[in-house]
Structures are given as structure tokens and as C-alpha cells.
């Protein structure tokens, strides 16, 4: 295969990257606008004219120009490598996300399994960054993150598995396709969240868990700025720091999109056949994802944060037992109906 022949493949593979980059620029701007509006402010207003839409570009340019600082006592290779590993893990997970009926990076049958496995790499990159920085704040942040992410993987997986029981497939494309059309009542979309009352509980568990997985308030302990300065990112600046931000926002999008696929019908239009099709499908899919992202932002600018032991308590004493019970109940429901 020459490079010319592989070009279409490269373009094919690059599509999620483009989506992530555009999304990240948009989401950072959106986060600031949401924060601004919630706090009776306006947020960025100056760069680019209308409501400061180009603020993220300005920030990006600034970050590119910044000096690349590596602490003298840092473990240099790991320090350099961690942000890229983190982003690579987030990016790789997008391979199995069905963006529209016409596009999916890799249509594999164990999509969900792959996605949950590859996002575990994020934990490693965070520990890597925290340890390599040779900074006590970074180390504390990394330790918290590791504990938090490993713990919250359990309820996440249980919630996802609940959906898989109903859907009967690990392939996310299949899961999406079976949610098209209207449900038995005739007026609600045929989305999984409406099909089983216990899936509503599963969604709540799933949503709380993805908040913790993507380090959002009230679970932003890894970088809780009033305690740990900036957690594992303390020593990072410039583009390396930007990679962390990019990975974090990509992670947010990934988990929101996963939620959209599992509970809200993926790229299916909420109006049945109306406004359907591959292009509209992409729009609806991103729209649903962004709604979840917005809710995450809304929560972030409302709540205080948990303490590290309370976070663990919430996970192991409440969410995990609840998700197991819920899992059993969903299985029972499926057997009965």
C-alpha cells in the first residue's frame, strides 16, 4: 500500500481528531460562557467580535508561544510523555463511537469493552504526570486521581452492563440502530432510557460516575485548585498543559457521547423519521452529547466539591451496591417482559 492509497484511510482516521479539536475549542469557550452567565457575568466578550467566540483561539496561540518548562528534578521522559499518552488514550476511545449512521471509526463487536479498557490508560498517564513532576502537590493529586478513577470504573461498568443486557450487543452501532423509531407507546422515541424504569436509575449512576471519571465538580479532587494548587498539572505549562486540557475535554465528550449512545438513542432523531439521515444523525448525536456536557458544566458551577474520603464512600458504599442491585433488577425486568 503506497501512501497515496493509504490517504483515504488517514482522512478516515483523522475525522474524530478534527471533531475533538473543534469541540475542545468550542467547549472551552462554552464553559467560560456558562460560568459567566451563571455568575451574572458575560464571560469572554472581546476576542473575535460576537461574544468573544475566538477566545479559545487566542488562548491556544498564547499557549503555543509559552516557554516549555521542565522542572530540573523531574523525570524528563515521563514528564514529556504523560500528556500525550493521556490524549492518545482519549482519542483512541473515539474509534468505536458511532458518530452517525454513515461513520464509525472501527465497527468492532466488542466496542464497549474496548472503550472501557482504553480509557483506563488515562489513570496511568495521570499517575505518570504526577510522579514525574517531582512535586508534592502533583503527587498528592495523582494519588487521588488514581484511587478515584479506578474506583469509579466499577459503577460505570455496571451501569454500562445494565444497558448491554437490554441491548444485547457490545457493538455501539448495533446498540444505536435498535433505538430507532418510536417505542411501543407511540409518542416517545424508542430510546433505551424510556424502555426500562431501572435504566433511569442506571443513567443516574452512570452520570455520577462519568462526572468522577472526567474529574468534574463535585469530584474534581485531582486538580482541586483550592487544596492542591492544580493537582497533577501543577508543574505543567504551555502546550503540555494544553494537551491535558484537550484530553480532559475530549474525555468529557467521550463519556457524554457514550451516555448519548447508551441511553438517548445515539444519532437517532428525537422526531422519528423527521430530520433523519447521516448528516442530521451527526447533528443529533453531537447535540445530545453537548446537552450532557452542558449539564456537567452547570453542576460544576453550582456545587462545592467532595472530600476524598467522602468520594470513596459515595463510590464503594452507595453507588456500587446500588448499581449491582439495579443490575439484577434490570435483568429480572428483561426476563419478565
Amino acid at each position: 500500500m503506497t501512501w497515496l492509497e493509504s490517504l483515504p484511510l488517514a482522512v478516515f482516521v483523522m475525522i474524530p481528531l478534527v471533531i475533538i479539536l473543534i469541540y475542545a475549542l468550542f467547549a472551552i469557550w462554552m464553559e467560560r460562557k456558562v460560568a459567566g452567565f451563571i455568575q451574572d457575568r458575560l464571560g469572554p466578550m472581546r476576542v473575535g467580535g460576537w461574544h468573544g467566540w475566538a477566545q479559545s483561539f487566542a488562548d491556544l496561540l498564547k499557549l503555543i508561544q509559552k516557554e516549555d518548562i521542565i522542572p530540573a528534578e523531574a523525570s524528563k521522559f515521563l514528564f514529556r510523555f504523560a500528556p500525550f499518552l493521556m490524549f492518545a488514550a482519549s482519542y483512541a476511545a473515539f474509534a468505536v463511537i458511532p458518530f452517525s449512521s454513515a461513520y464509525m471509526g472501527s465497527n468492532i463487536d466488542i466496542g464497549v469493552f474496548y472503550l472501557l479498557a482504553i480509557t483506563s490508560l488515562l489513570t496511568i498517564s495521570v499517575i505518570m504526570a504526577g510522579w514525574a513532576s517531582n512535586n508534592k502537590w502533583s503527587l498528592l493529586g495523582a494519588m487521588r486521581t488514581a484511587a478515584q478513577m479506578v474506583s469509579y470504573e466499577v459503577p460505570t461498568i455496571m451501569a454500562v452492563l445494565s444497558v448491554i443486557i437490554v441491548a444485547g450487543s457490545l457493538n455501539l452501532m448495533t446498540v444505536t440502530e435498535m433505538q430507532s423509531g418510536n417505542d411501543t407507546l407511540g409518542f416517545l422515541p424508542n430510546w433505551l432510557i424510556f424502555q426500562n424504569p431501572f435504566l433511569l436509575v442506571a443513567f443516574v449512576i452512570f452520570f455520577i460516575s462519568i462526572l468522577a471519571e472526567s474529574h468534574r465538580v463535585p469530584f474534581d479532587l485531582p486538580e482541586s485548585e483550592s487544596e492542591l494548587v492544580a493537582g497533577f498539572q501543577t508543574e505543567y505549562s504551555g502546550m503540555r498543559w494544553a494537551m491535558f486540557m484537550l484530553a480532559e475535554y475530549a474525555d468529557m465528550l467521550l463519556l457524554s457521547l457514550l451516555g448519548a449512545v447508551l441511553f438517548f438513542g445515539g444519532w437517532n432523531s428525537p422526531f422519528g423519521g423527521f430530520m433523519d439521515g447521516p448528516i442530521w444523525g451527526f447533528f443529533w448525536f453531537m447535540f445530545k452529547g453537548m446537552i450532557l456536557v452542558f449539564v456537567m458544566m452547570w453542576i460544576r458551577w453550582t456545587l462545592p466539591r467532595y472530600r476524598v474520603d467522602q468520594l470513596m464512600y459515595l463510590c464503594w458504599s452507595i453507588l456500587i451496591p446500588l448499581s449491582f442491585i439495579n443490575f439484577v433488577l434490570i435483568a429480572l425486568w428483561e426476563m419478565l417482559f
Binding site: I38, Q39, D40, R41, P218, S226, W301, P304
Partner: peptide, 16 residues
């Protein structure tokens, strides 16, 4: 105090 606990928004409300 709220800010220390991670609640940013009440801080700006009281500042108003």
C-alpha cells in the same frame, strides 16, 4: 469560604 470548598458561584453572588 465557599470558594475554598470548591463552590465558585456563591462567591460571585455575594460579591455583587
Amino acid at each position: 469560604f465557599g470558594l475554598d470548598l470548591g463552590a465558585f458561584t456563591p462567591f460571585l453572588y455575594v460579591f455583587t
